[in-house]
């Protein structure tokens, strides 16, 4: 395997990582605040559809992005209403969101575009174009680092860089600001926040809204950055993979970057080598493309490391029985 191939795989890993990272950070905000969110998948799907549909109709990827965010935030509000205001079961609400998105996207897609649930292919300004970072071409001649910069670091769409910046941003917000302190506290022991004179619902609503925005970015990126349009069930379990990555990352931002990169890398390798020839044995493509999902199962089953979820996660805050 030569250096150029490695760079290609890494480049593709970064692209494939991005929706996972955005969704993973989305889940991080929500779950750190104590609201478990199994509905990442549905929100992403809904956002992907809205973004693609809007971009197809208006021809503007930015309007598509706004529509994607709005759609995901809208779904988040449903989850917030069920989980925070009505103190319902967060798992059930999340599953309902996934079903809702899965059905609604196809139904609306078919009735608006009559393409069997897809949206029309996007091109030009209706898609995110890649950004060449300054100096990418001039530095290319520097051995090893130059091509790495030009191939892997440069040349992605805006949302990839947004996602990358969100990692230190989230870390800073979580550990360096008042909002972060309160957010982490409300996921561990909401009564401590309440008795400190801070509103528990308000904090959780803020977290759920942020979660909506980030899944919006993730979905929009899928449909208008990574692909050129919406296809039925195009999230393909990425919401669940992001959840697995979140657990693997132990609900921390930098580790989320690492975990989602690992998943992205696996997908990239599987795409590049549908059948991996290991010399003595050839790994069939089925196994290769199942890799990220297998890893998800292994992580969710708790085989890797010890995850310590936010203590109050999944439980509505009820003061009076």
């Amino acid at each position: 395997m030569d250096y150029a191939t490695i760079l290609q795989i890494l480049d593709s890993a970064v692209r494939l990582m991005t929706p996972l990272l955005l969704a993973c950070l989305a889940g991080l905000y929500s779950e750190r605040a104590g609201v478990f969110d199994i509905g990442l998948e549905g929100k992403m799907l809904m956002a992907a559809f809205s973004a693609a549909a809007t971009a197809a109709v208006t021809g503007s990827v930015w309007l598509g992005l706004v529509a994607g965010i709005l759609a995901a935030v809208g779904m988040s509000l449903i989850h917030g209403l069920a989980a925070i205001t009505f103190r319902g079961n967060q798992l059930i609400s999340g599953v309902a969101i996934n079903f809702l998105a899965s059905g609604l996207t196809v139904l609306l897609g078919q009735s608006w575009f009559a393409l069997g649930g897809r949206t029309p292919s996007l091109e030009g300004a209706a898609r995110f174009g890649s950004i060449t970072l300054p100096g990418a071409e001039t530095l290319r001649s520097i051995p090893v680092l130059g091509p790495f910069y030009a191939e892997v670091v440069s040349g992605h769409t805006a949302l990839v860089y947004v996602a990358a910046l969100l990692v230190p941003g989230t870390w800073w917000l979580l550990y360096r600001t008042r909002f972060g302190l309160r957010l982490r506290a409300v996921g561990e022991n909401p009564a401590s926040v309440d008795t400190a004179g801070v509103s528990v619902p308000r904090l959780r609503w803020a977290a759920v809204a942020i979660c909506g925005m980030l899944t919006g970015l993730a979905g929009a990126y899928l449909a208008t950055g990574l692909s050129a349009g919406f296809v039925k069930e195009m999230t393909a379990g990425r919401g669940y993979i992001a959840l697995a990555a979140l657990i693997f990352a132990n609900w921390r931002p930098w580790r989320a970057l690492g975990a989602t990169f690992l998943f992205g890398l696996m997908e990239a390798v599987a795409n590049r080598y549908p059948e991996l020839d290991m010399g003595f044995v050839t790994i069939p493509s089925m196994v290769m493309s199942a890799l990220p999902y297998l890893l998800t199962v292994i992580i969710l089953a708790g085989f890797i490391g010890r995850a310590t979820p936010p203590r109050a996660g999944g439980e509505p805050y009820v003061k009076e029985r």
Partner: peptide, 8 residues
């Protein structure tokens, strides 16, 4: 917690 002096 809850008695911070500012946003940072």
């Amino acid at each position: 917690l809850g008695a911070e002096d500012g946003a940072l």
